[in-house]
Amino acid sequence: MAEQIVFFIFTILVLGGGIGIISTKNLYYSALFLSMTLSGMAGYFVLLNAGFLAAVQVVVYVGAIAILILFAIMLSRRMMTSSEPQTNRQTWLAAIVSPLLFIAILVLVLQVNWPVSSAAPTGDALILLGMSFLGSYVIPFEVISVLLLVALVGAIILARDTHTDTGREQ
């Protein structure tokens, strides 16, 4: 019972943040609503016995990605002052299609009788995680570091002000 109440609280955070994102015109508020959703997700992970993942969620999403998005919003501030509607021509179509898709997916997914196991988790999931990262998942583990390197190189090349290099900055 208590768990269900906690689940609902986190659901309010997650879905409330999501609805906030699509309903607000202010991009800054969208980013803050995103952080709200992401914090709620961390709560979900705690409920699902994935404490480590909850911390990862907060460290990477709230602590890094949300900050990055806020920085980018502040760097491209000018377009946020425009009073034009923030949505494009597909809005009505999307407003019809999205709920339909929601219902379709739910109908499909909830028909399946998933083989739920009632076993309680045993052992320290954290050690298991570490052993898996360097065991069965060692190739993705190394590839991630290459991916991060490539992302950093690409992002630095893209984001750097090319004008500053040639001294043409006003």
Binding site: F52, V56, V59, V60, G63, A64, I65, L68, D124, L126, I127, L128, L129, G130, M131, F133, L134, F141, I144, S145, L148, L149, A151, L152
Partner: peptide, 16 residues
């Protein structure tokens, strides 16, 4: 961000 993500992968390694 890049180093933050790196640290996420190093924590389970350290424990295990």
């Amino acid at each position: 961000v890049v180093f933050d993500v790196e640290s996420v992968f190093l924590f389970p390694w350290a424990v295990a």
